[in-house]
């Protein structure tokens, strides 16, 4: 049995079709990442899984339980961390944790052990008497995660948990997720940071209310069969124009201060030198590059269009 099962899921809000027949499964104990641009339907999907929104059509099961009929049961075995920090800023770290432990009816004895463990995980122990409002962004996320984990859920759903958090805290956060996974918890996480996809067992690329590709990060990257180069130059925009005119170029993507250029045929060293002269030295550096999830994603989107 899969931990999460989604079949032909459809949901519309007025004129907007948020989900148009979504299909995917999260296996027991898996860490599954949902990747996609804003408006792809990730949040709606998660809210349906958490029984906060009713689906229009299709079937969603969490641990075999139907989201339409068995909401209460699902809620007790599911942990959900919404996109926005949503705890009580005027209550302390400990009061927040206690409050959610109480609502989930975690037995007193178990609660203490669980708190100890979560404090250890999150390193929030020294801050337990601090009002949540006075925590840093990273600590807030860890507190929200701890609150979602307080009742030892079997399935954890996280909606862009690392959004707006500094890189160090993000790294820490993923480490915590890995240890949670080791406890046997199934995790569904969405993210807008493509580099985080590598942390997941499997990744689903979400676009316009559908999963357009799904596999392990390694397999996904292997799909990108075109030779890829990382290119630097004095004027990236002019360089981009230039490569558009080369017939063997398959795609050009701008990534910060570099271009990722892929080719339908492996270019030779002579080709590069010729291009350098043609651009009058504007082309400065080229190197082969292993495709990232982002390259794959953009490629898949091209195909979709």
């Amino acid at each position: 049995m899969n931990a999460i099962e989604v079949r032909d899921l459809k949901k519309r809000f007025g004129h907007i079709e948020a989900l148009r027949g979504m299909n995917f499964q999260v296996r027991e104990g898996e860490l599954y990442g949902l990747i996609g641009p804003d408006g792809a339907g990730k949040t709606t999907l998660m809210r349906i899984i958490c029984t906060l929104v009713m689906p229009d059509a299709g079937e969603v099961r969490v641990k075999g339980l139907d989201v339409r009929q068995q909401r209460t049961k699902i809620r007790s075995l599911l942990g959900y961390m919404p996109q926005r920090f949503s705890l009580y800023p005027d209550l302390t770290v400990e009061q927040n944790l206690h409050f959610f432990a109480e609502l989930f009816q975690v037995p007193e004895a178990e609660r203490r052990a669980r708190l100890e463990m979560l404090y250890h995980f999150s390193r929030l122990g020294p801050f337990k008497n601090r009002p949540a409002a006075n925590l840093s962004g990273g600590m807030k996320q860890k507190l929200a995660l701890s609150c979602a984990l307080i009742h030892t859920p079997q399935v954890l759903v996280l909606d862009e948990p690392t959004f707006g958090v500094d890189p160090v805290s993000r790294q820490e956060f993923w480490e915590i997720l890995h240890s949670v996974q080791k406890e046997g918890t199934t995790i569904l996480v969405s993210t807008a940071y493509m580099d985080e996809a590598d942390e997941c067992d499997r990744v689903g690329l979400c676009f316009q209310g559908r999963i357009v590709a799904e596999d392990t990060p390694a397999n996904l990257k292997r799909r990108f069969s075109y030779p890829l180069y990382r290119v630097r130059g004095s004027n990236l925009f002019r360089l981009q124009e230039f490569f558009r005119s080369i017939p063997t170029v398959h795609s050009i993507q701008m990534f910060g201060d570099v271009l990722h250029v892929s080719f339908t045929r492996q270019p030779r060293a002579a080709d590069w030198q010729a291009w350098q002269t043609q651009t009058g030295g504007g082309l400065q550096e080229w190197k082969t590059e292993a495709p990232s999830i982002e390259d794959v994603f953009l490629e898949v989107l091209e195909e979709e269009k």
Binding site: S76, Y80, P82, F85, Y88
Partner: peptide, 13 residues
Amino acid sequence: ELGTLEQLMVTPL
């Protein structure tokens, strides 16, 4: 406003 309503709704409350 805080989003805690949603958080409360996913508890057995």
